[in-house]
């Protein structure tokens, strides 16, 4: 493993620990007493104290934080005796409201969220790159101006509005799409696709617009580079000049941004999943916020942080592969 990767992973772990500490600190300060929540309605102060002792809530902050971090790697047990709950590694906390470990709740919903995220990413990459390239090739023409106008419009529509409009038009009015029902891909690919196509579009539209503009700007910049002039002076045909000398330099920065955007998708999924009533990680987070289910919110926050850190490292690795200048010279 190259040295820089070790450094990156190490600093990534450091960042994650800080994220952990910060979120834990916030929830530690803001959290309603879990003991009260567990205790339910007819509760006496004595019982609450007992629960608190059981869960270690009477211990100092650092001790609790330490247990939390250890729990992520080794798992932990909340409480003692009959009422004890197991939380296997990786233990991101335990939701006493749902009587379930946060990690299990996330894992159940992750496939759905991942489907939405990957589908949307594919969609916006294709649309953004194609739109940007087309716009750059036809710079200054009607098509270019039209694309620019379209991207500006798309970027200014909030995605929950778009979601509601799409749902109304495509499902209710035109009836091009069936009402969503839970099906697995293997059972009915058509229905599966129909279920996901709207969330994909809604999540992808804003990114697609941004990527169109970015691609267009990058390609036009690169076309002004001296080495493109050199390529023409060598007698290369325009398609080859574009393909070899313009595209690769123009698209390299997009890799970076794509990595970051993809890693940060959880926030977008929160709105999209909620609007379409899809039971993914995003909707779970939204519901937990409504219910004030602290451990779940915290677990999702940590997951988001983890994805961003991993995304960054992946981007760095990919970047060294595609840009020879950042490769370490022998």
């Amino acid at each position: 493993m190259p040295r820089f990767l070790i450094t990156r992973v190490a600093s990534g772990l450091g960042v994650l620990l800080l994220v952990c500490l910060f979120t834990y600190l916030v929830f530690f300060a803001l959290s309603p007493d879990p003991a009260v929540q567990i205790c339910g309605k007819n509760c006496t102060p004595e019982v609450i104290d007992q629960i608190r002792g059981n869960l270690g809530l009477d211990q100092p902050f650092w001790t609790q934080f330490f247990h939390f971090v250890v729990g992520i790697f080794a798992g932990r047990t909340y409480g003692e005796g009959v009422g004890a709950v197991e939380c296997a590694a990786p233990c991101l906390g335990y939701s006493f409201q749902s009587s379930q470990a946060v990690w299990d709740m996330i894992i159940q919903r992750l496939p759905v969220s991942a489907t939405i995220a990957v589908g949307a990413a594919v969609l916006w990459l294709l649309a953004g790159l194609a739109g940007g390239l087309l716009s750059a090739v036809k710079e200054g023409t009607f098509l270019d101006r039209f694309t620019t106008g379209l991207t500006l419009t798309s970027m200014s529509i909030p995605n929950y509005v778009l979601a509601l409009v799409l749902q109304y038009v495509l499902v209710v009015k035109l009836q091009w799409l069936p009402f969503p029902q839970a099906v697995a891909f293997a059972d009915d690919p058509g229905q599966w696709f129909a279920n996901f196509v709207m969330p994909w579009i809604v999540l992808a539209v804003g990114y697609a617009a941004a990527y169109t503009r970015l691609t267009r700007a990058n390609v036009l910049d690169v076309l002004r580079e001296n080495y493109v002039r050199t390529a023409y002076a060598k007698g290369l045909a325009q398609p080859l000049v574009w393909r070899r000398h313009a595209l690769r330099p123009a698209l390299t920065p997009i890799v970076t941004i794509f990595g970051m955007d993809f890693a940060g998708l959880l926030g977008g999924a929160l709105i999209t999943e909620t609007v379409f009533g899809i039971n993914g990680v995003g909707k779970m987070a939204a519901d937990s916020i409504a219910r004030n289910d602290q451990p779940v919110i915290m677990g999702v926050t940590l997951l988001a942080g983890f994805l961003v850190v991993v995304g960054n490292i992946v981007v760095d690795v990919v970047y060294t592969a595609i840009d020879p200048r950042v490769r370490v010279n022998a």
């Binding site: 580079e225 001296n226 080495y227 050199t230 690769r248 330099p249 595609i322 840009d323 200048r325």
Partner: peptide
Amino acid sequence: DPLSSLNPYY
């Protein structure tokens, strides 16, 4: 300018 006249990626 030979640096900018050569493509850095190849």
